[in-house]
Design a protein around this nucleic acid. Structure first.
Length: 478
RNA sequence: GCCCCCUUCGUCUAGUGGUUAGGACGCAAGAUUUUCAUUCUUGAAACAGGAGUUCGAUUCUCCUAGGGGGUGCCA
């Protein structure tokens, strides 16, 4: 029996969970779930100055919202610093690491010089074999890894294939800073090893690190995990994702009215495929996900496609679940603050009742909520330009007058009965249905666009419907 | 500069040493329709360029161009 996969998602808490991170988390999650394994969560906060608790909260919150749950407790990397330094000392004792007394200024000069001469701009090994007794005593040293200087390091990557690096291009990286704290490069290795990680699935930007890390694994005599470096996500213009395009935190997508399942579906198709399948449920993702079908080129973020997928999941969503999703985030929807404050039990009941008609015509939850406004407005309604135009016509108002008794006489206020009666009225009076429905829509919703008119009638109820129609008759400004 | 990676419709992608190069989003046209949507039908739209290997390359190799990543006492 093969060992169960243990993956990890290891964000650094310097900002929110952006879309690229979310996809990395999703891939790790899917791979673990697919293989009956575990996905661990580790916060890479070794850079204390840049790590914030707000960022940690945002990341955890984002993952929960996306439905990506992790196994076990969250590991905070900086809390394991002692263990990391212990390994650094071991390397030092074995001669696989050494003290370096170069000042930051010297290093900068070194880099500039190398660059000017067209060489690889790494550390030149000044202290690699130098006698520590010649060290200046006013300088606190860093600890550097003694990397092999010849031969090559090859990474067998599940996405990128075999990638070869000449060892002379990889310099002696810093393990321990001059203040004694461990760097990311040391910490990841120790933690991944100690946590029993079997597969590292992370962004392409770590590919070079993988080579450096595998050298350290070798020095330690540890077996490196399997690697899968996934391509980055770019903005619509092909440049690195920035705040201008899609590099928003996942909570921003929630605030824009996207559903987590839509985002998951969109994200999984960005770089990974399963034949021609586009609409993929989470259950299917877990069944199908593999490393072999991850593409090697960067993908651009396309809001239009996300929107389309979101519309699909809204249309096919369960009414009650959609209501819950709206309840959770209504307060953060743009221009919906008023509703977040004012909706009462009865409003929510009507909202759910109207959902079948509403969900057919919204690509985001925000759009859906705004389309539902006619349900909550208080009489007398105000009318938009198109509604005014519709109701401004003499004969349109006349139609409403003639329709009123018909509606008054309806006993059973159901969509079917309503439709039957209005259609009969249309036949008898020889007035086209459109000539009835449009003024009616304007009178009842204040606009020219809405769900099916019989839905509107039904959800509003007899009393409110009649009252809104009557309001139009009394309105002199139309 | 140096190292590494990538390149199929506008976008996400499938695919194969011989295919009318497939799907999806978007776009266009049409049908349905009480508005808007939905739904359905149809259409336009791609193998970056150049060599080579081969009977035959989109597919394999090399080069060029373009794009991306790395190059920190950041992660």
């Amino acid at each position: 029996m093969t060992k169960k996969a243990i993956t990890r998602f290891a964000p650094s808490p310097t900002g929110f969970l952006h879309i690229g991170g979310a996809r990395t988390a999703l891939f790790n999650w899917l791979y673990a779930r697919r293989n009956g394994g575990k996905m661990l969560l580790r916060i890479e906060d070794t850079d204390r100055a840049r790590s914030t608790t707000e960022a940690i909260d945002a990341i955890l919150d984002g993952m929960k919202w996306l439905g990506l749950d992790w196994d076990g407790e969250v590991v905070y990397q900086h809390q394991r610093a002692d263990r990391h330094t212990e390994i650094a000392r071991q390397l030092l004792a074995e001669g696989k690491a050494y003290y370096c007394y170069c000042s930051p200024e010297e290093l900068t000069k070194m880099r500039e010089k190398a660059r000017a001469e067209g060489r690889a701009p790494g550390y030149d090994g000044t202290w690699r074999d130098r006698d520590p007794s010649t060290a200046p005593d006013n300088v606190k040293p860093v600890v550097r890894f003694r990397a092999p200087d010849e031969g090559e390091t090859v990474i067998r990557d599940h996405v990128q294939g075999d990638v070869r690096f000449a060892n002379r291009d990889l310099d002696d990286l810093i393990l321990l800073r001059s203040d004694g704290t461990p760097t990311y490069m040391l910490s990841v290795i120790v933690d991944d090893h100690d946590m029993g990680i079997t597969h590292i699935i992370r962004g392409d930007d770590h590919l070079t690190n993988a080579a450096r890390q595998s050298q350290i694994y070798a020095a330690l005599g540890w077996q490196p995990p399997e690697f899968a470096h996934i391509p980055l996500i770019h903005g619509p213009d092909g440049a690195k994702l920035s705040k201008r395009h899609g590099a928003l935190g996942v909570e921003a997508y929630r605030a824009m009215g996207y559903l987590p399942e839509a985002l998951r579906n969109y994200l999984v198709r960005l770089g990974w495929s399963h034949g021609d399948d586009e609409i993929i449920s989470t259950k299917q993702m877990i069944e199908w996900f593999d490393l072999d079908h991850i593409g090697r080129s960067a993908a651009r973020f396309d809001f239009k496609k996300l929107e389309n997928l979101n519309g699909h999941y809204i249309r096919h969503g369960d009414d009650r679940e959609l209501i819950s999703a709206i309840k959770v985030s209504l307060h953060e929807f743009e221009s919906c603050e008023d509703l977040a404050e004012s909706l009462d039990e009865e409003d929510w009941r009507k909202f759910e009742l109207a959902m079948p008609g509403l969900k057919e015509r919204a690509k985001t939850l925000v759009e859906l909520v705004n389309n539902a406004r006619y349900l909550f407005v208080k009489r007398p309604l105000s009318f938009d330009k198109k509604a005014r135009k519709l109701l401004g016509k003499e004969d349109a108002r006349h139609v409403l007058e003639r329709l009123t008794p018909v509606l008054e006489n309806i006993e059973e206020w159901s969509v079917e009965a309503l439709e039957q009666s209005v259609r009969d009225f249309s036949q008898e009076t020889d007035i086209a249905l459109g000539k009835i429905a449009q003024p009616l829509r304007a009178a009842l919703t204040g606009g020219a666009v809405s769900p099916g008119i019989f839905d509107v009638l039904f959800v509003l109820g007899k009393k409110e419907t009649l009252a809104r129609i009557a309001d139009v008759g009394k309105n002199d400004e139309l």
